[in-house]
Simulated scan of single mutants.
Amino acid sequence: MAVLMALGPFMFEAKGFSLADRGRNLDTPWASIEVAGGEDRLQWLGGSGRSETIRGVLFSEFGGQATLDGLSRAASMGVILPLVAIGLAPNNVFGPHVVEGVSEDHGFIDAGGRPARNAYSLKIRSYAGQPNYTGAAAQFVQTLFA
C-alpha cells in the first residue's frame, strides 16, 4: 500500500484508510479599535493557528475502519500527534497536531447493520506548545494493547 500521509501512527493510504482531499485554514484575526476623530486602528491578535480538514472514504472490503477508530480514541484522550506528508520533501513535516473532531457518514448498510462505505472528516489543528509525547500518548498506546 502506498502511504500518502501520517498523523502519528495512523497512515493515510491510497487503499484502506484512504485520503480523498485536504483543506487548510490559517486564522490571523485583527481587532478594530475605535479612535475619536479618525479611522479605526487595527491590532493584530496573533492568530489561532493552522487548522486542516482531511476527508476520505472507507470501504469495508479494503479496511481502514480500525485506523479511524484509533484516531477517534486518540482524539478522545487528547493525544498530540505529528503530521507528516510523504513525498513532499523538504516541506513534509508539519509538526504536532491535535484532532478537534471526527465525523462519519455511514452508507450502504448490509443485513448485519455494518456499513460498506464510511465517509469521514477529521478536523485537526496545529499545536503551538511543546508537545509531551510521553503522557497521553503512552496511556493511549496502553489502550491499544489492553
Rank of each mutant, 00 (worst) to 15 (best):
G113A: 01
G107P: 01
V84L: 12
D110H: 12
F108P: 00
P90H: 05
G95V: 09
P82H: 07
F108C: 08
F108D: 15
I86Q: 10
F94V: 01
P115N: 03
G107T: 08
V84S: 01
G107Q: 13
G113K: 08
D110W: 14
A85Q: 08
N92A: 12
L83H: 04
D110R: 13
G101C: 10
L81P: 04
R114S: 09
D110T: 13
S103P: 03
I109N: 07
I80Q: 05
F94D: 03
P82K: 06
H106F: 10
F94G: 00
L88V: 03
A89C: 00
F94W: 15
V98T: 15
L81T: 05
N118E: 00
A116P: 00
I86A: 12
V79N: 08
D110G: 11
I109A: 04
R117G: 04
L83N: 05
L88E: 13
N92T: 03
L81G: 01
I109P: 11
E100H: 10
P90V: 06
G112E: 10
G113F: 03
I86V: 15
D105R: 14
G107A: 14
E100V: 08
R117F: 00
P82S: 02
H97E: 02
L88I: 04
V102E: 03
N118M: 13
V79H: 05
G101R: 14
H106A: 14
G87S: 07
F94N: 06
P82R: 02
M77F: 06
V102S: 09
A116M: 11
I80M: 09
G101P: 02
G112H: 09
F108K: 08
L83G: 10
G107V: 01
G113R: 13
G78F: 01
E100G: 14
N92W: 08
N118G: 00
P90S: 06
H106M: 10
R117D: 01
R117I: 06
V99W: 02
G87P: 06
R117A: 05
G101D: 13
V99K: 04
I86G: 00
F108S: 09
F108Y: 02
P90Y: 04
E100Y: 11
R114Q: 11
E104D: 01
D105N: 14
I109D: 00
G113Y: 07
N91S: 08
H97C: 14
L81V: 06
A111K: 10
G107I: 01
G107K: 10
R114G: 03
G112A: 14
V102G: 02
N118D: 07
M77E: 02
L88A: 06
V102P: 10
